[in-house]
Amino acid sequence: MTERIAMAKAINLGLRRAMERDSKVMIMGEDVGPLGGVFRVTDSLQKDFGDSRVVDTPLAESGIIGTAIGLAYAGYRPVCEIQFDGFIFPAFDQITTQLAKARYRSGGRVKFPIVIRVPYGGGIGAVEHHSESPEALFAHTAGLRVMSPATPSDAFAMIQQAIASPDPILFFEPKARYWDKEDVDLQADDAALGLIPAPDGAVPGVAGLERARVLTSGTEVTIAAYGPTVKTALSAARVAGEEGRSIEVIDLRSISPLDIDTVATSVTKTGRLVVVHEAPTFFGAGAELAAAVTEKCFYSMQAPVLRVGGFHTPYPPANIEEEYLPSLDRVLDAVDATLAY
């Protein structure tokens, strides 16, 4: 049975499924209880699962992640919500010095199946610290996985995959896509959700978390994007298609690790790559992808990898965020530019 729902609702229902599946899954964060989170992603969960499993925490991000680590030691699978991207930094210490290294430190003996949900990205007319894309900071940190869904269906599956993962995951949710609607198969079984069904009703596992997805097939230019910019990439592919160009769009889905092989296979065919993300291009995910693809596909490349993304400025005031964010025109310009080489 499919239902047309928004991404915020899809993640909500994915969380619900995960909580039903595994009694050790719990939710913690600021305002996740009666309010249901500031984006209503945890709506009704406290009502249905109780305030022991859905915890309104004190207002302290470092505390949220630090205690989640302790809960993981005690065998729980905390799903933490950081209210906005720009508020993750009080927890940066716990995430990078503790969570990312804890398994390594334990010699692999302790699992830290912690998901940190972070509404991220701009385009919603918000104030400072509410529109940022800090994913590269975490992708740069070994021990963490970094993922970002682009559509309601994928969000529904990916949040469940993330929770099933025995590794800590930064789960970046594109705020600007929260209210995009799509038909989502809510009855999908574990296998269809990308989970590995376990015998005897045990909690399922997960594999292939890093797989990118080719959304449109094309021969001339590859556009790689993730999270909020996938929609922009698809628009660019459509417009370019109307102009007679053949564009292949890849939704990376995972930022760490990067599915280099899928992108390289595509670039070997097209010879051209444009990477699109909202985060600043300077030292961003696109830079890593460009380097990796160049190493793999150098002699197939007809143009340098071009990046479209944010500038090396703090996220600007909302009135001019439209000019900051990678727009359809900027993506098309990059496509044109690669073709002009």
Partner: peptide, 18 residues
């Protein structure tokens, strides 16, 4: 505001990246 103003005041000195 002028969109180009987003580049103002990021650094006190001239910065080649900006």
């Amino acid at each position: 505001p002028d969109p180009e103003s987003m580049f103002d005041h990021v650094y006190a000195t001239s910065n080649s990246q900006i």
